[in-house]
Amino acid sequence: MRWGARRSGVRTNPDMTPMIDVTFQLVIFFMLTMNFSQEEQTELIRLPSSEIAKPPDQPVETPITLQITAKGNVIFGGQQMPLANLKRELLREKQLLESMPGKSASKATIIIRADGRAQIGQVQDAIAICQELDFQHFVLRAKQERKVLKPEGA
């Protein structure tokens, strides 16, 4: 009978090789698509999109990320706070930077990730606060996305 093998108590060894192959393929796929550099993205911020915002070729030196929500609050160092509190927190960051050799506020780059619905004045206020503390390099971050401008006269 067919079931003879089972009855005689021999262990069946299913061939695991194809499964392990597939699993390894998956592991490798997910490993390669993983991206540590965009860890700071949060759901709170909807970046505006731009077709010519090209991802930088090399990482910026001493990046400090400042996120501005649609309501004009600032997320800095994982904490959400009103714009008025930013100066205190940034000052702490600046002191920390200056305690490290070769680093200073004037060499650091502030990356601004502002929500598209925020007001430009709020973004400028945040920049002004950074400038008061000697930060000089700023980049505005946008999502790289094809967005066709409306044709003339539309």
């Binding site: 998956l26 965009q38 980049v139 505005l140």
Partner: peptide, 25 residues
Amino acid sequence: VFQLLIFFMLSLKLLAPEGDFHIRM
């Protein structure tokens, strides 16, 4: 291997790449 698979699966985020505008300030 399954542990690894699950870790990488959960940490997967499909996001549009981001780019920068340098401004002079």
